[in-house]
Simulated assay, not measured.
Amino acid sequence: MNLAFKKISEFDRGILYKLLLDGYSFDDRYRKCFEQDWIEFDNFFFDNLNIADKYGFITVLEDTPIGHISWDPRNMPEYVEIGHNCIASKYKGRGYGKRQLSEAIDRIMKYENLQKIIVGTNSNLIAPHNYESVGFQLVQRRDNNGDSSFSGDYLEYEITL
């Protein structure tokens, strides 16, 4: 199987939203809680393709978009924060998420003088295992008492460079 990482600008508006919707389809509470944020994220990147192509990509398997990842460089050189990191449901559990994350880390590590890469996630997702598998270390755990409490505690990870 041929896995590739392509520019977001090669796809139509809505693809980021659709992949997030699919990736979290295992529990409709995610859609209810985060759908508006996903739409705004998709719109921001497609309104700013120069940012999208520089700080994110879409993972493609045999011409089918199966996931995407993005990162925020605005706090460099102190840190870069990984944002959305999503794989479509049909393709989960096959190592594509780890390969996508590893590709993003390789790209981020090319920034000069960068001190660390950070990411936040929730404890009730598979994501913590994925982040730990590529070298992230848990640095903080906080209670989640908000509308998204079903997703578990907030976890903050980092890789110190």
Results as ranks from 00 to 15, higher is better:
D147R: 13
K116N: 08
L138W: 06
G93P: 15
F45W: 12
K98F: 00
R74D: 14
E62S: 08
G67V: 04
K98L: 03
H68A: 12
L101C: 03
E103V: 06
N43C: 01
N122Q: 15
I58A: 03
D147K: 04
S148R: 03
P77K: 14
N48K: 15
N43P: 07
Y91H: 01
H84E: 06
F150H: 04
T59Y: 08
N75Y: 11
G152P: 03
K110W: 02
D42T: 00
N124T: 06
F136V: 00
N43K: 15
D53A: 07
V60H: 14
I66V: 13
G67Y: 02
I126G: 10
N85C: 15
S70R: 04
G93F: 07
D106E: 14
V119W: 05
Y111R: 12
P65S: 14
N122K: 10
G152V: 06
A104T: 05
I87D: 05
L61T: 08
F45E: 11
G135R: 07
D53N: 14
D42G: 13
K116M: 14
G93E: 05
N43S: 13
E62A: 03
L138A: 09
I118S: 05
D63V: 03
I39F: 05
F57R: 13
I117H: 04
I87N: 04
D72K: 01
V60Q: 09
I58N: 09
N124F: 06
G120R: 12
P77N: 10
I66N: 05
N144R: 06
G146A: 08
S149D: 00
V134S: 08
Y111W: 12
A127K: 07
E62F: 00
K116E: 15
S123D: 11
R74G: 12
N85M: 13
F46W: 00
Y111C: 06
L49Q: 15
Y55G: 06
N145P: 01
P65I: 10
T64L: 08
V139W: 07
V60A: 05
D72N: 12
H84N: 11
G83A: 11
D106P: 00
D147F: 02
K110M: 12
I82K: 03
A104I: 10
R74I: 09
Q137D: 11
M109I: 09
I58Q: 05
E40N: 15
I39K: 11
F44Y: 15
G83K: 04
G152R: 01
M109G: 13
H129V: 04
I51T: 10
N113W: 09
C86P: 09
